[in-house]
Write a protein that binds this DNA or RNA. Sequence first.
DNA 1: TCAAAAGTGTTCCTTCTACACCCATGT
DNA 2: ACATGGGTGTAGAAGGAACACTTTTGA
Lengths: 235, 235
Amino acid sequence: MAESHTATTDDHVSPHVTLILVPFRLSDFVLQAGHRANTPFGTTLITGNPGVHESLDDAARRIVGQWVGHEPQYTEQLYTLGTDRIARREVAVSYIALFREDARSGTPDARLHWSPASQLEISDDVHRMVFDYALVRLKAKMGYTNIAYHLLPPLFTLSELQRTYEHVLGHQVDKRNFRRRMTAAGTLVKTHQMRREGSHRPAAMYRFATQDDPAAYLTPSWAAASYATANDDDD
Amino acid sequence: MAESHTATTDDHVSPHVTLILVPFRLSDFVLQAGHRANTPFGTTLITGNPGVHESLDDAARRIVGQWVGHEPQYTEQLYTLGTDRIARREVAVSYIALFREDARSGTPDARLHWSPASQLEISDDVHRMVFDYALVRLKAKMGYTNIAYHLLPPLFTLSELQRTYEHVLGHQVDKRNFRRRMTAAGTLVKTHQMRREGSHRPAAMYRFATQDDPAAYLTPSWAAASYATANDDDD
DNA sequence: TCAAAAGTGTTCCTTCTACACCCATGT
DNA sequence: ACATGGGTGTAGAAGGAACACTTTTGA
């Protein structure tokens, strides 16, 4: 881990390809983003470089995993930029990485900080752009995919799921409509476990039926037809 | 142009960042893809390298523009890959590029060929992957954006628009529903010109009201709310 | 007058939205 | 008994899908 940390910082080296990573997790169903604080450049995102024979996706998982202490539940490439600052045929490939709060920790990097996503202020222009875009994409995907799966623990209540959506989307949703939509989608399975906590009726625990839900992807019905493995991202 | 052609080929140099470009156009309302034929590697896509202080998007437009003979109507970054073949911290950034058939030509590169998109067979694995993904993305975007704008001439009939959709989507759509949907979206403007050709009733010519239609983007209504500049790509 | 494409409405069904009360529990 | 969050149904609106005939022109 120590050896790769030296490869992970971008303070001194000037690599050809940099990865910029935006880790998200829920803490008490509030969305948090992982970042570095108090670097010479202020608050920055996590960066790193792929190894010589490592795919970009693998590198993204490895690097963010080292910082957080365990592998992410889910990663997705966002965008590749070649900015003014990153001239000379150097590019930055950005990734979103989702974590389950509950996951057993390895040894997280002490320099990693978590802040509520809505409050994170990033000084560097490129990093801020990447972060803003990551948040927009996460929100948008909440609407038409099961991406929330990757943020939640294996068992959860519908109220917890709803709170997650509300926090990420930034507004409230109707309880009955939300429950109907979620259960009707067929991707939730009601278990026989109950969560009893507090002086009120216990809640049924649910789990997700699948890891990701191809049917929940976009494509209006009139456009759909010959479909096979249409999606990676989609967006 | 000659000077940049040498920078455009990737046969001899081994750059740090390669762009892979997938040009599309309509020919008689059939979708065609641009490519190189009979290279040492068989049929391949167009590739090139960004200049030292050039953004990736600019480079994509410049390179594909040199091959086709004029600038594309529209480009969009697809995905960045670091494959086995592209090891050693080299990456390939792929772009889709849309052209209007009618556009006045500069001097297209003689090596560029156009083939019906449904029939193009690419030997190289990476190029084939990029092409397949480009086609999937183009189809998906037809469903929920105005991306067809960038393939059509400034004035067109509703039947032509429908033929375009049918060819790209690969299946037929209902004429009345299609027309209602398109006109109801408010993005089409009926002009006073008519196209009279053939022994039948003349067709009204339409144009697009805007270049791209943010309202036509995805995001289910229950998820929407605090929206600003939510889209670049999406999916 | 015929062939060929342009153009046009309605019904049904599904899906979304708005909205308010009872239930099971712990203290 | 009361406070707390869990859980449920319905009516109205909007949007999508299926479906067939009339219109205008050139030959």
